[in-house]
Amino acid sequence: MLSLEHVMLRNGAFTLSVDLTLQKGQRLGLIGASGSGKSTLLNLVAGFLVPDTGRILIDGSDVSRTDVASRPLGILFQDGNLFPHLSAFDNVALGLRPDLRLSESQREAVTACLDQVGMAAHADRLPKVLSGGQQSRVALARMLLRDKPLALLDEPFSALDPGLRRDMLGLVSDLCDQARLTLILVTHDLREVQNLCTDLCLLDKGQVTIRGEMQTILSDPPAALRPWL
């Protein structure tokens, strides 16, 4: 599904150098200290950054130089996921048509996605009157609507309280199961990875130091992972 082949990116003294493969339906939790390269890696996959060398393949196609919007992926950011002047409905609809001129079937699809995340009743509301959890649900609905096979989550729930975060992770997990999404979650919290992911990757100074199936790694945690437990 996703393959990073000898991908390298230099930024001053920092160098990210990664080889990584993800099968369809796998959910990878990407953890690491601040500055380890997690977000850089996600930005490379998303297309916000272009690698100096190496290739990024999605479903066998080289997308290393493809622009963000043309890659088959959806993204949830840490913040700023919603446009503040648009209603929840329009924020989701934007995922289908930037000019918001929707056909009847498209409107139904938007409503269905809002319903899927439990936000159909709040469709007309502006983001400022929605709670943090509700805003995350709307952003998630848009990601679902775009129906892309790869989901990138860049600490999207870090601003939520622990209860809401748990709910959101559960919701994302269910939706991933239903849509058979492949997912990369960037986080500082190993518990989030445990709740949502099938695989784990630890980055340190731009290098992958641990990579494998979650349960296997956690059954006998390597020393490098101990600070995260």
Partner: peptide
């Protein structure tokens, strides 16, 4: 900086980017 990446991800360009971002 705030929403440029989101707009890129959604393919918002031209008039749509101007209107929404």
């Amino acid at each position: 900086r705030t929403q440029g990446r989101l707009a890129d991800a959604l393919g918002l360009r031209g008039a749509a980017r101007l209107c929404h971002v």
